[in-house]
Structure formats: C-alpha cells, structure tokens
Computed example of a mutant assay.
Amino acid sequence: MSTLTELAEGAALPELQIDPISRTTLALFAGASNDHNPIHIDLDNARSAGLDDVFAHGMLSMAYLSRYLLTLAPQSAVRHFSTRFVSITPVHGAPTCSGTVASVGDDGTVELELAVRLADGTVTLAGRAVVEVAS
C-alpha cells in the first residue's frame, strides 16, 4: 500500500473521527454482537453499579479500530493485530482512531501503534498492527 511505504518511523497517520456514541448505537451493537450486558444499555443497571450512565462495549471500540486499520491497509496485508482495553467510552463520547508508524521492517512490513481516544485525550483502546507493504 503506497501511503504506508512512503512513511518513516514516527510518522503520524491520518485520523478517523467517529460520531458520538449514542444510546441507539449501543442498542444496535448489542443486537449485532449478541452482547446484551445491561450495563451498556440500561441506565438503571449502570447507576446500580455506581456509574453515572451506560458506556460503550469494549468490542465496539475494537470494531472502530479495526475499521481504521482497514482504511490504512487491505485486510490481506494485515499480519498481526492486537489491542488492549484501557478505559471506558462513555455514552456521547466521540472517539477518534489514530496511529503512528512504530517501525519499518527490512522484511517489507510496517509496525503501527494504534489508539482510540476521546476528545479530552483519554485513550480507551491501545493497539498494534503489523502490515505488509511490499511483497
């Protein structure tokens, strides 16, 4: 993929802005993923757990980060992808996916450091990927 082959170690990648997480988004994701944990969709349940409101499924953030990765490279070029959940994404939070080139390998691969962040800079999901950029 040409954009990654032209980048050097430390280069910032274009960001992907995600619309604010709505209650509708959470309900639709619960149905699509079959994850109906009430802490993500039921305000009373979230409050009984000591929270102010519901929050997004961690796998929703991972889905957004996967979508972002596939804007950078085709799926066939992805050699490794891992994530670590760092913080919750509150309802109405507006995630942004971003990345930097962590290293450029001699084997035709690029290692990317990826993240999902909220507007205040809080990282909710950290990730790494290795992408093949040359055959």
Score class of each variant (00 low, 15 high):
residue 23 R to K: 05
residue 96 T to Q: 08
residue 67 R to P: 01
residue 131 V to P: 00
residue 84 R to M: 11
residue 13 L to P: 06
residue 64 Y to A: 08
residue 47 R to D: 05
residue 65 L to S: 00
residue 38 P to L: 09
residue 74 P to A: 14
residue 21 I to V: 13
residue 21 I to R: 00
residue 111 E to F: 04
residue 107 D to Q: 10
residue 96 T to G: 03
residue 32 A to M: 02
residue 76 S to M: 10
residue 46 A to C: 10
residue 91 V to Q: 05
residue 39 I to C: 10
residue 48 S to D: 10
residue 115 A to E: 03
residue 98 S to A: 12
residue 117 R to C: 02
residue 104 V to D: 03
residue 21 I to Q: 00
residue 134 A to W: 09
residue 111 E to D: 14
residue 5 T to N: 13
residue 74 P to E: 15
residue 89 T to M: 02
residue 58 G to Q: 06
residue 116 V to R: 00
residue 26 L to G: 01
residue 41 I to C: 02
residue 114 L to Q: 00
residue 62 M to I: 14
residue 124 T to K: 00
residue 41 I to Y: 02
residue 19 D to F: 07
residue 63 A to T: 11
residue 1 M to D: 10
residue 91 V to H: 00
residue 16 L to M: 12
residue 16 L to Q: 12
residue 43 L to T: 12
residue 37 N to P: 08
residue 41 I to T: 15
residue 104 V to E: 03
residue 72 L to S: 02
residue 4 L to W: 06
residue 128 R to H: 13
residue 56 A to R: 00
residue 85 F to L: 06
residue 126 A to Q: 08
residue 44 D to L: 08
residue 39 I to G: 07
residue 25 T to N: 10
residue 30 A to G: 14
residue 7 L to H: 07
residue 132 E to H: 14
residue 127 G to A: 03
residue 2 S to V: 12
residue 132 E to A: 15
residue 76 S to T: 13
residue 31 G to T: 11
residue 92 H to F: 10
residue 8 A to K: 14
residue 125 L to D: 01
residue 79 R to G: 12
residue 113 E to H: 11
residue 37 N to E: 07
residue 132 E to L: 14
residue 54 V to K: 09
residue 17 Q to F: 09
residue 28 L to N: 07
residue 52 D to W: 05
residue 71 T to K: 04
residue 1 M to Q: 15
residue 93 G to A: 01
residue 68 Y to S: 04
residue 81 F to V: 05
residue 27 A to W: 15
residue 66 S to Q: 09
residue 4 L to N: 04
residue 104 V to W: 01
residue 56 A to Y: 03
residue 20 P to H: 02
residue 38 P to I: 09
residue 88 I to C: 07
residue 63 A to H: 06
residue 36 H to M: 14
residue 36 H to S: 14
residue 58 G to T: 06
residue 10 G to E: 05
residue 98 S to M: 07
residue 15 E to C: 08
residue 40 H to T: 10
residue 49 A to M: 14
residue 66 S to Y: 02
residue 101 V to C: 11
